[in-house]
Each structure stands twice: as structure tokens, then as C-alpha cells.
Design a protein around this nucleic acid. Structure first.
Lengths: 249, 249
DNA sequence: TTATTACTTGCAGATACTTGCAAAAAACAT
DNA sequence: ATGTTTTTTGCAAGTATCTGCAAGTAATAA
């Protein structure tokens, strides 16, 4: 059998069934596993499949790619993400919300970190799945078209039954006197439940959002524990938040 | 034998069998391998065949290679999606699985259709959220890294408590005698529960998957109700499935 | 931990390809 | 027809690629 023929057959198999196993291919094609492995490697190098240990997967299963340039204030969010990651330890149970900062956390999560994540956000979940050692549990429910997260009583009920070590909460608006606020009733309900559920709540916010207020209140600042921004902890604009009882990172 | 004559024979052989092997041609034509190699090279230079090491392939054989970013068999999947959509009615409760065919359904869903979707697939859910009138409920649980769907007992338990009108099930492998099969234990468990839960199950499959078998069985064909492929319902390769009790669309 | 499985690397035999060349064949002109 | 030119062909030497094996390493499972 010609090499190209063999590779075309492999590619076809991957495209039809989404995955192939190396040893199966070796049997079916009548060549050594080494040869199949090299074929898979070539197809992967050509970007036609995704090579994984013991076989290969169709590329369409990995279409979710996110373009860092499109994210507003990308630099700041990366700094925040790094700080947040420093709080994570192996075997923690971490509740994580949606938003681009949390997406960035999921993206740059150290590969060897073994954490169990609970999330209500579709995009955060998608990104977490790319991580080799993270386990991801999605709290299901009715999906909000705007926020792209699970909302509704079911989610709150599920949140009441768990006790995560940490909640990484993306914020919409944050103010020393008005506390944590947001725009959507459904989202507020979920965030309230998340904060109540977690042992510690970490607020993630770019400094631009400091001192801004939205229409619906989630909670006062003292109900959260840690605030992470891209600024130095001693920065003047953070003093009011430290005074409100938040630990600043 | 004249050179032109020889090349015409080679070209015919390539067009009929999609492939030729250099050594075979040398024997059949009674010329040295070098000569055949030069002939193949000329035909390749003229763009009539594709030269590969050890032989040559017909140009159409390479169709599979040149659809990089596109979904595999996109045309076929669109046809299937349209047929599946014809089954949907306002106010139906529809269970929908993952896979690119279901993604296409979600993408081309008529905007005025008011359907409640239940899904375990992250990407299907994402796409459904783009629809103005569809309500989407995500059945949460532990997420499978490979299939990107919720798996585990929780999901099965949730599925047991609902009675959807329709289940749109993307298939991996389908065979008249071996029934519906798949590659992953967790996925099989979920699909079983989906089929059991729904009043009617619709199997979505491109014709290439017909007659293929994977390692783990989901169910026999008679446990599903409708089969949708891109082929005409009367097509010969569908007869065995109709005989097994499936309605063909 | 150990056992197992998959992967990497290097290597050697096999196979296929390139190049140059000279003989054979074909084409052409006289 | 005959000789000349051009093209084609087969061969040989050297090179490149492919393939399977083996030893060692890394990742995963028990």
C-alpha cells in the first residue's frame, strides 16, 4: 500500500468517527505501529488531525480557539489571571464564573495543576477542557442568552449543596459604598449563590471597573474576601477596598 | 509500444482504480521502472495525476485533503440538518446531542421556531444560544474532555426525569446487524439514557458511517425511530435500515 | 510504589528516486 | 535508402525516503 493511500484512509477514518486508535490502525492497515505513528504525526504536522497519546482525534473537536487580541484590556487581564492562579493549590474545589478574565485564567492555568472546577459558564468550561489535569463540572440549568451561563433555581439549589474552597468571580461593577453590582437579575441571583456557597470569594476586576455601579446589587464588599486587579496592592485607588475589609492582591 | 499509448493506458488505469503502483505498471507494460517513472512524472507535470512515492493517485483521490478548516462532509451534513429541522414544531421539547451535524442544525434553525432544547454538548449549547427563540437547557455534570459533553450518573438521572418529544442523536457508527455503536463508554451511557428518555429518537448519520461498527454498543436499530442521511430515502444502501424498522428520511 | 503502555531516538535494510550516460529507436532530411 | 539529429530507453552509481526493530524514556494505570 502506498503511503499516501494509507494516510488518506487514516484521515477519512478520523473525519468519520472523530477518533482513531493507533493499534487498530496498525492491524487494519497491516503496517507496524511505528509507521502508523509516523503517519499520524505527519497528518498532525499538516494540521489535519490532532495527535493524542495512543491515537488521534478529528480537528473539529478542537475548533474552540480564542483570539487574545479581541479581548478588551488583555494585558491587564493576564496580570489578574496570574495573581488568581497563585491562589490555586492541588485538589482544591474551585467555583469559577464567566467573563474574559476567568477565560484567561483557564487558558494560562499551569498544566500540572490538579484542580476540580465548578462552573456555570459555557466558554469557561470550554477552555477548562483544554487543560490536561483539571476536572470540570458544569452546573447545568437554563442558559442565559446574554451571559451564556446557567441560571435559575436549579443552579442555586446545586450551589447550596456544595462547599468549594474558592470562588473566582468575574465582576461587572465594584464600588466601596455600593458594593458589588451587576446588570442582569438572573446573573445576580447566581453570583449571590456562588458567593454564599464558597469558603472564600475572590473578586477579579480590572481597575477601570473600580468605582462603577450597576443597577442590581449582588452584595457588599465585606462578603467577599480577596480583590485582584492589575494594580499593585498598595495603589492609592485600592485603599477604600482594603478599608472595606478586602484583602488586596 | 509507443510512449503516448503507454501513458494513455496508465491514465486510464489511474482513473479507473484511483491508484497505480509503479512496479505493477512496469510488469504489465513490459518496460523498465525508470520509464514508467518518467511517464508518471510527465502525467503529473501535465496535472493529470498526482505522483506519489511508489506510484500515483488520481486527482480526485486527494479531495479529502483539501478542506482544512471546513467541517468534514459539510454539504451532506447541511442536507441532514434540513431534514431534521422539518421534524421540529413549535413548543416541542427536543433533546439534542453533540457532533457537527447537530451543530449545523442549531446553526440553520429557522429563527421563528420556538423550541425548548435540552443538551449535554457545550458546542451545541453555544450555537443554540445564538437563536432568538430557542430556549436552551444544559444538563450539567462532569465534562468529558474528549467528547465535550456532560457525562456521569447525574446526567442519566436528569434524563430519567424528563420526557422529550424528540431526540436528535448524532451517530458515530451504524450497522444493520450491530446496531448503534460508539467508542467511549461514558458517551455510550449518555446516549443510551437519551434514547430511553425521548418519545422518538432520530438518528443523524452521513452515509459514510453506514455499515461501520465501533467497539461499544449503544442499542439495536429498532430502539430508534427515524434515520436521516443525506441520501434519498429510497437509496439501496438504506434498505437494510428500513427493514430493521427505521423510518427513513 | 510497580507494571503497563505509549513514545522517542537511532539504526539498518529495503525500496524508491535522481542524475548522467550511452545505446536504441524514432523522426527527419537528403 | 542512408545518414544525421532528436528522442526515448535502460542501466548504474549515488542519494533520499520509508519501514520495522530495539533500547531507552516518559506517561498512565493499578
Amino acid at each position: 500500500m502506498l503511503k499516501k493511500e494509507r494516510q488518506a484512509l487514516i484521515l477519512r477514518e478520523v473525519n468519520i468517527h472523530n477518533r482513531v486508535v493507533l493499534s487498530d490502525l496498525s492491524n487494519v492497515l497491516g503496517v507496524s505501529e511505528d509507521t502508523v505513528r509516523r503517519d499520524l504525526q505527519e497528518l498532525a504536522d499538516a494540521g489535519k488531525i490532532v495527535k493524542v497519546r495512543g491515537g488521534a482525534l478529528s480537528k473539529s473537536y478542537h475548533v474552540y480557539s480564542y483570539q487574545e487580541n479581541e479581548i478588551y484590556a488583555y494585558q491587564e487581564k493576564t496580570i489578574i489571571a496570574r495573581k488568581a492562579i497563585s491562589l490555586l493549590r492541588d485538589d482544591m474545589l474551585v467555583l469559577i464564573s464567566g467573563g474574559s478574565t476567568n477565560l484567561e485564567i483557564a487558558r494560562i492555568l499551569p498544566p500540572d495543576l490538579r484542580v476540580i472546577f465548578l462552573t456555570v459558564s459555557l466558554s469557561t468550561a470550554m477552555q477548562l477542557l483544554e487543560h490536561p489535569n483539571a476536572e470540570t463540572i458544569f452546573l447545568g440549568g437554563q442558559l442565559s442568552k446574554t451571559a451564556k451561563i446557567s441560571v435559575g433555581g436549579d443552579v442555586v439549589a446545586q450551589l447550596n449543596q456544595i462547599k468549594p474552597d474558592l470562588c473566582l468571580l468575574g465582576t461587572n461593577a465594584l464600588d466601596p459604598t455600593h458594593g458589588l453590582t451587576d446588570t442582569e437579575w438572573e446573573v445576580v441571583t447566581i453570583k449571590k449563590a456562588m458567593i454564599k456557597s464558597a469558603a472564600k470569594t475572590v473578586l477579579l476586576s480590572i481597575s477601570e471597573k473600580l468605582g462603577t455601579v450597576q443597577k442590581i446589587k449582588i452584595c457588599d464588599l465585606d462578603e467577599a474576601d480577596i480583590l485582584i486587579t492589575e494594580l499593585e496592592p498598595e495603589h492609592a485607588s485600592l485603599r477604600a477596598y482594603a478599608a472595606a475589609g478586602l484583602k488586596i492582591l
